[in-house]
Simulated assay, not measured.
Amino acid sequence: MRLTSDAIMVQQKAKGEALKRFFSNHPYLISFAVLAVIATIINPDYLTYTSLSTLLKQSAIKGVIALGMTLVIISGNIDLSVGAIVALVSGLGVVVFNTTESIVVTLLFCSLFGSILGWINGMFITKGRIAAFIVTLATMSAYRSIIVQIGQGGPFNVDMNVLSAITTVVNGRTLGVPHLALIFVFLAVAMHLLMSQTKFGRYVYAVGSNEEAARLTGINVHRVKIITFCIIGALSGISAFLLIGRLTSITAVNAGIFFELDAIAAVAIGGAAMSGGRGRIAGTFLGAIMLQMIEGILIAAAIPPFLNGLVKGIIILLAVLFQNKKSD
């Protein structure tokens, strides 16, 4: 009987340790649960199917960028130019759509052009040996300046004759589920598989954990970094396409403003290490949703919208502080 009791205690202790390790590796689940409880207290209908699908829809445009930012941060870099890429690509995307009247051509243009802009960032970082922070800070200014000049400060408006085509694709629903939500989930699953099931994903983690060690094992570090910036550029381009369908009018000065802050915040509260080498697509996916939940909570609490930036800044600091404590 004594042995049985000891065995039960050992089993319980092992389960407790396993549970502790699980939540230690997935801290975003606790954060999500806490926010869900707070949101439900404020609005008892918050966790209904309709509310959750709307939450996914509202998180999608910035969340798609955050998925790409996860790769960049895991690789030990940062991209501050994503908001400007969205502005440049969406502005020119409107021109392409008005000219071709083709959803497919416009989507391909947005994703390809965004990828090229990301490639430019990656080339300066790797071949030019310039810090990612400096490069993307410079291109953030350059990309937005280009589209503002092209549009002469005015908006890029989708032609009324083709307006319904893109709004139906972006703002429509299939089986009651918003297309934006479906796109976000699809891309999140695709990026999760890329990072967890492919050699490239393992390379990204290796480069972020120890770049020199990765190089010594035969990994082409420069190629991995360039590809991560191409991916975030392509995802920013897709986000730009979604923004066109969502707004139908792109103002170059304001389009994509602070998207980089939201993307970084989503990655940070999703549990990724800002120093690189650690992070999960699932964490970023929930992180983007949590940011939207926080905005809803602030609105419900009658907090001035101008303080949203303050709250997001605090969230980033606390998330990074937690990661630093965890690594000590």
Results as ranks from 00 to 15, higher is better:
residue 287 G to E: 09
residue 35 L to I: 13
residue 218 G to C: 06
residue 229 F to C: 12
residue 248 T to F: 05
residue 62 K to N: 05
residue 81 S to E: 05
residue 72 V to F: 07
residue 56 L to P: 05
residue 237 G to M: 14
residue 62 K to V: 06
residue 61 I to S: 06
residue 249 S to W: 07
residue 41 I to M: 12
residue 286 L to V: 09
residue 297 I to C: 01
residue 70 T to S: 01
residue 200 F to V: 01
residue 140 M to S: 01
residue 206 A to M: 06
residue 15 K to D: 11
residue 62 K to E: 02
residue 286 L to E: 08
residue 21 R to Q: 11
residue 8 I to K: 15
residue 125 I to Q: 13
residue 276 G to K: 03
residue 173 R to S: 10
residue 45 D to Q: 13
residue 156 F to N: 02
residue 45 D to N: 15
residue 30 I to V: 15
residue 102 S to R: 11
residue 273 A to F: 07
residue 180 L to N: 04
residue 134 I to A: 05
residue 168 T to G: 06
residue 138 A to I: 08
residue 23 F to M: 13
residue 106 T to Q: 09
residue 137 L to S: 02
residue 315 I to Y: 02
residue 326 K to V: 04
residue 250 I to N: 12
residue 112 L to D: 12
residue 247 L to Y: 13
residue 327 S to R: 15
residue 192 H to D: 03
residue 171 N to C: 04
residue 57 K to T: 03
residue 105 V to K: 05
residue 182 L to H: 03
residue 223 R to K: 08
residue 316 I to W: 07
residue 44 P to D: 13
residue 148 V to K: 11
residue 132 A to P: 03
residue 28 Y to C: 10
residue 16 G to K: 13
residue 65 I to M: 00
residue 249 S to I: 09
residue 86 V to P: 02
residue 293 M to A: 06
residue 15 K to R: 15
residue 172 G to I: 02
residue 117 L to G: 00
residue 213 A to D: 09
residue 106 T to C: 15
residue 3 L to R: 12
residue 302 A to V: 07
residue 231 I to E: 08
residue 209 S to G: 15
residue 57 K to M: 06
residue 51 S to D: 00
residue 129 R to Y: 01
residue 238 I to H: 10
